[in-house]
């Protein structure tokens, strides 16, 4: 008898816990680099705060008994808020508490899009930030928009859509370098914030990369290639060429 009362597949909850563990490991591995980025334009606490918060979140996730995805998100989000000790708590964690509600029927391509959109909306609202402010929003917005389009308009399989989202986040992180910070501690530097990569956006990219890896693992598929220079729109000529090859049946 499962302790899961929602009727949602238990494996979805386990996959979400696995994702949180992967993120915790990755953030710990990147801790010094994130702190280095933050010390250039901020208060040099991003790496330490995030590593502490995600380690506690992974621990809290592991302790859950057979949870559904929504419960994992809520627990992890609340733990991040309690443990991070900075703006990343409400931004990364608080948004997760709200967005997790979109996964109450399990993790599907559609619910993942709804999750992503709610998450972005909460980050924007809480941080009062928009694209171009040199914040995490600069990575999340292109990632979420690209994911939604890839799923809903281009009809890509979820894993390929997520890979496109990672591409887009990577470009978003690069976009934070040549712009001026308008939110967060970096905004106090004024024009001196230009030329620096935003640590929060960088963390968001790492999180998305880990989500992609864990999603591939959960689906039993290879991790798709991620290439920030690849086109956002699927290459139709290549697809047609592939179809042509298949139709012609010449196996060169």
């Amino acid at each position: 008898m499962s302790g899961n009362e929602s009727g949602v597949s238990d494996s979805d909850g386990a996959a979400v816990v696995a994702a949180v563990e992967a993120v915790a490991e990755r953030i710990e591995a990147e801790r010094d680099y994130l702190t280095e980025l933050d010390s250039a334009i901020g208060d040099a606490d991003h790496g330490g705060n995030m590593a502490r918060g995600w380690a506690a979140a992974a621990e809290a996730g592991r302790e859950l008994d057979d949870p559904d995805p929504q419960t994992v998100c809520k627990t992890v989000g609340k733990t991040l808020m309690a443990e991070v000790g900075g703006a990343s708590g409400p931004l990364f964690g608080g948004s997760l508490v709200f967005a997790g509600a979109e996964l109450d029927d399990g993790v599907t391509a559609e619910s993942a899009v709804a999750f992503a959109e709610t998450y972005l909306e909460k980050v924007e609202d809480r941080g009062d930030a928009r694209v171009g402010d040199q914040t995490v929003v600069d990575a999340l917005t292109p990632a979420v928009h690209t994911f939604k389009k890839s799923v809903e308009t281009d009809g890509l399989p979820p894993l390929d859509a997520l890979a496109k989202a990672v591409d887009a986040a990577e470009r978003g992180v690069a976009f934070t370098v040549p712009i001026r910070a308008r939110k967060g501690r970096a905004s106090y530097l004024g024009w001196r914030s230009v030329g620096h990569q935003d640590p929060g956006a960088t963390s968001a990219l790492y999180i998305l990369e880990e989500l992609l890896a864990v999603a591939a693992d959960a689906l039993g598929e290879e991790v798709p290639d991620v290439d920030a220079t690849s086109p956002t729109i699927p290459d139709e000529s290549a697809a047609e060429a592939a179809d042509g090859d298949a139709a012609s049946g010449d196996g060169d």
Binding site: D45, N49, M81, G85, G86
Partner: peptide, 13 residues
């Protein structure tokens, strides 16, 4: 005030 660990920061709880 503080991050709850003796450092600089803020915590909602």
């Amino acid at each position: 005030g503080g991050d709850g660990q003796g450092g600089i920061g803020t915590v909602p709880d």
